[in-house]
Design a protein around this nucleic acid. Sequence first.
DNA 1: CGGACTATGTGAATTCATTCACAAGTTACT
DNA 2: AGTAACTTGTGAATGAATTCACATAGTCCG
Lengths: 220, 220
Amino acid sequence: MAADDGKRKISESTIQRLSIYYRVLSILKKEDIKTISSKELAKQEKLTPAQVRKDLSFFGSFGTRGLGYPVTELKNRIANILGLDREWKVAMVGVGNIGSALVGYKEFQRHGFTISMIFDNDQRKIGSNHKGILVSDIANLKEGLRENKIDIVIIAVPATVAQYIVDDIVEAGVSGILNFAPINLKVPDHVILRNENMSMELEHISFSLVNRESITATKE
Amino acid sequence: MAADDGKRKISESTIQRLSIYYRVLSILKKEDIKTISSKELAKQEKLTPAQVRKDLSFFGSFGTRGLGYPVTELKNRIANILGLDREWKVAMVGVGNIGSALVGYKEFQRHGFTISMIFDNDQRKIGSNHKGILVSDIANLKEGLRENKIDIVIIAVPATVAQYIVDDIVEAGVSGILNFAPINLKVPDHVILRNENMSMELEHISFSLVNRESITATKE
DNA sequence: CGGACTATGTGAATTCATTCACAAGTTACT
DNA sequence: AGTAACTTGTGAATGAATTCACATAGTCCG
């Protein structure tokens, strides 16, 4: 009943954590656990109970004092908040190494993201089937996205051509883009763009390793 | 000359941004640009000049007032900070959809991460070649990692078995792990673990889309 | 039904990250 | 040499996110 005037500013990290809670709740539900406290939920993912409660409180109050949160209800509520209670129509652009792997990635399907179109510019791939999906010519990208009412596009093409493709995607009226090319793409404000840069994660690890080593070295 | 006592606390986001600066500097170098100001550098990635300067200042002062930063020198310095000026020996565990794609991912190689071992438990894959690398039996994981002095392991196996594998990896003395399984893995404090969860990014997009829509709806 | 216990929800306090704003150093031009 | 124009590096100010701490509300059990 509380808090749904669509005005609050939710932080990036809160959203990330909602995804995490959702994952945990899915497992709990499968294990037939009925309720969970913020303390337990936090422990599973190395967070603090206060943070769990604060995160959830942005969207309402779902818990019962003295008892905790009802697993199924909370899971459904988070699904609703994250928009996972509907099917999203997703297209993949670029079906090389990464693109091809993602088309077969079960996890996407499980969360309501259905990849139903694939585009590529390689003549040898166009017309062929990838996991049951026809590979279309990237020349038809704009019309294809429009006709099929695609919600979200995943970009897995070389960095050099990514911007041109994004421009087309935006023109086609798509407003959710997940980019795997290691480059900063420009999109209008109303378009939601997220970047997934796997090298960056490895670099983070190497930074930490180098750092850790220097600390260890001075310690002993 | 300044700031190298290995005691400062560098924030996660600063490290992420160093990766970004590094990428931009690599491009600038290729374009034969000699110097860049914090203002320009910031503009490329939609950051603020102050943030660029602050980030860099944690590690020393590399710039020249009135002029900016020397591209090549700064690039090298960041490479050093991030540990990209050496070769890291990387092993891949699990060569399904994702794992297989990552083995062929050029970007890793370019940043000094060389995947030289692959492990899997599928008898049909063991002994075969993947992009020129022999697929080993996961039963030999521990010895394999030790013998080959692997620095970093990438995990691309089903969530259900990921924890067992991590335990082995840790026992083998590896202290950098990049995990693609959608599960929170437990590791000792001295081990650096990073998670890459691609569904989470999609969920972030769907959250934003749902949110944006509701805002648009009330606006008109 | 009553008392001990448990856990939420949330303002206030704290910690952490970003941005501001400016002194100080350097260039470039006359 | 002098001056106008830049740009860094960094304390101080602001802003954002996290944690604390507790009043409040429910559970559970005898």
